[in-house]
Amino acid sequence: MNLIEVLNWSVALVPVLVMVVLFAWLDVFKLMAPRELVGPLIMGGFMALVAWPISGQMLDTLPMGYSFYSRMVAPWIEEALKAIPLMILIAANRIGYKIDAIIFGFAIGAGFSVVENGFYLMRYPDLTMPVWVVRGLGTAVMHGTTTAILAAVAHELGERRLREQGTGLAFNLLWFVPGYLAAGFIHIIFNQFPDRPGLVMLATLVLAPIAIIGLLRFGETEAQLWLVEESEGHRLWLEEWRKGGFPADASGQRIAALAGRATKAESERIREYCMLKTELVLTAEEELLDRDRKLEEGESERLRTGFARLEALQQEIGRTGFAALRRILPFSRNDEWELSELKELLESE
């Protein structure tokens, strides 16, 4: 590979990856380590591999030219494919706040663009540097931005369900429809000016970072308010548990009824499990609010002991008893995500 080819590959692939790292760095909560960005990048790249044969098949079988397909059809197919990894991540409870939804979304779009540009680099090696500059600084950034917008809108529509009590599946395809439409229309507008690639690239370089940074700042404010509200609620629950009673809310009363039907030993295990889990969730929220993503000296051992005891209590309560308890616990899917973040922080110590 000569110097020109190295430069072509660099300008086509590297800028959008740098932007992924930059946006993750701008996250004040530091929710994602660099290694966590690899997954969405790979998922986005895989979707580009899927898109390639779909595009070829449609062009071969449907009566449309490449220009019409590129401008009017491809955007909808590509945005739908990029939405699939987001659906998987939300269904698997790997996205907690809007901030990480946006960053994951941009990373998926970036992965898609890297593989797509790689295809073009191998298929059209004789194209000149300006083409790869436009694709690396224009098309690639557009792909990341549209998926980030899709992610932000889907999270906004689904966040009430994510904050509801209960740890069952939180997923609704309708959450993704408005964001998908927005992403598709932006993509279509981008593709309408094949004769002015430089102008479109410059517009993208100006507007895309403004949009992403604006979304990140909105997500930051929302997450801050969300954390303060939920930590206060969990602190009140914990105080009620520590006083020896049951929380006065509906969930607490259902737990009291379950404990009342159990033996004394079983009732004590239920109380201990609920109190310990509340402590751990509250600790997770306080660590996120602290923002430095570092545990105080001696905190790691206490938390490891707490998580180990939580697992032991689950085993002691038994499969049937825990299934009944889990249905009425006052914890949301987002609380479970916060606990997973705390565990990841422990593992990184």
Rank of each mutant, 00 (worst) to 15 (best):
S10D: 10
V11H: 11
P15L: 05
V16Q: 03
M19Q: 03
V20H: 02
L22R: 12
L22E: 00
W25P: 00
D27P: 05
V28G: 00
V28R: 05
A33R: 14
A33F: 11
P40T: 12
L41K: 03
L41M: 10
G44V: 01
G44W: 00
M47S: 10
A51I: 06
L59K: 13
T61C: 00
Y66Q: 14
S67V: 14
S70E: 14
S70F: 13
A80M: 11
P85Q: 08
I95Q: 01
I95P: 02
D100G: 02
A101Q: 12
I102V: 13
S113E: 03
V114K: 01
E116I: 07
Y124S: 13
D126R: 00
D126W: 05
P130T: 10
P130E: 13
V133I: 15
G136K: 04
T139A: 15
A140R: 02
H143V: 04
H143Q: 08
T146V: 15
L150I: 12
A152N: 02
A154H: 03
G158E: 04
L169W: 12
Y180V: 06
I186S: 06
I188K: 09
P194W: 14
D195R: 07
P197V: 10
P197D: 13
M201C: 12
L207H: 08
L207E: 06
L207T: 12
L207D: 06
A208V: 08
I212S: 04
I212W: 07
I212D: 01
I213N: 03
G214P: 02
L215F: 09
R217K: 04
F218T: 02
F218S: 03
A223R: 01
L225K: 11
W226L: 11
E229S: 11
S231E: 14
E232T: 02
E232I: 02
G233D: 10
H234S: 00
E239N: 13
E239H: 13
E240K: 06
E240A: 05
E240G: 02
W241T: 01
W241N: 03
K243W: 00
P247S: 15
D249G: 09
A250L: 12
S251M: 09
G252D: 08
Q253W: 11
I255K: 07
A259G: 10
A262V: 10
E268R: 14
E272N: 14
Y273E: 06
L282W: 08
E285V: 00
E287H: 12
L289Q: 15
D292L: 04
D292E: 13
R293W: 09
L295N: 09
G298C: 10
S300V: 13
S300P: 00
R302C: 05
R304L: 12
F307C: 09
A308S: 14
A308F: 10
L310D: 13
L310G: 08
Q315Y: 05
E316S: 14
I317K: 04
G318K: 10
R319Q: 15
T320L: 09
G321L: 11
G321K: 09
F322R: 08
A324K: 15
A324H: 14
L329H: 03
F331S: 04
S332E: 09
D335K: 01
D335G: 01
E336W: 08
E336V: 09
S340D: 15
S340E: 15
S340A: 14
L342V: 07
L342C: 07
L346S: 06
E349K: 08
